[in-house]
Design a protein around this nucleic acid. Sequence first.
DNA 1: ATTTCTGCAAACGATTTGCACAGGG
DNA 2: CCCTGTGCAAATCGTTTGCAGAAAT
Lengths: 153, 153
Amino acid sequence: MDEGVRQRIYDYFAHKGMRRTVQRDAIIEAAFTTTEHYTAEELLEMAHKIERSVSRATVYRTLPLLVECGVLKELDFGKDHKFYDPNYIEHPGHNHLICTDCSRVVEFEDRNIDTLEDCISKRLGFTPTTKILRIEASCDELLRQGTCANRKV
Amino acid sequence: MDEGVRQRIYDYFAHKGMRRTVQRDAIIEAAFTTTEHYTAEELLEMAHKIERSVSRATVYRTLPLLVECGVLKELDFGKDHKFYDPNYIEHPGHNHLICTDCSRVVEFEDRNIDTLEDCISKRLGFTPTTKILRIEASCDELLRQGTCANRKV
DNA sequence: ATTTCTGCAAACGATTTGCACAGGG
DNA sequence: CCCTGTGCAAATCGTTTGCAGAAAT
């Protein structure tokens, strides 16, 4: 995982008078050795492989801290459970397109959308702090060829 | 409430072989006599004033039907509970800006955003079905004058 | 020694569901 | 009559929390 991120987390924890523990280390390690989105449950599973003593409670207690500290982004896909996105630090402005056919999530950035969002906010008398754009869409390839290759972009 | 909406709901219900009941009538009435967003619990409270016999279960059973039928939109503000938006039929493309200072929700439409979202989707090889844009923002007026008038736009 | 952390299991809160009865067609 | 709709209360499920012991500083 990126050492800058690790340092940022430790600094944040230290700043809050929080201690370093094997459980938290394992959770942090697990949280940033993937670029995929995950749920709390999935993170527990990943952290558990690194350190057997990690419990569900500690995962749930650590996740909000990572979000607070700005290294992890909480996502709301309209499902019952939340998702967490470790790619947020590298691509802070990225958005999500979810394929309604295969549930694949495509991340994308667009400077024009960003600018437009800022303009609209300003016009309404606000300064944006968080902008969430989620597009649900059907796969054109599936429509044309009857098969969704689930290809990486 | 709008009679076209009412008719659309009854047609949809009839089409599904569903019956008309005082409880559902009360829920529908309550759902469209406001232009505000509400939670299932709040809708129960409103429907309850119209017809005392409406129960929580029936509200929860009716809400998805109204969403399915396209007259109500389910919103995800990242809170624990869902919100429902009765303004969706009149302004299908509208988006939400949430004030982080006073929690007020401002609805807005923007043709440029719409077009841009379609273009991006196409470029990625998809056809958008649902586009959700949510902006969280701080109030400029509050910043300048130290007070947020919570004014209507 | 002092304070934060931990796992466990119980609690939580919004939503869903099984059931037996009520009521629309 | 038949079949759908209902309220109630219990169940569900992701997440949170109280607690007593464990570990970090």
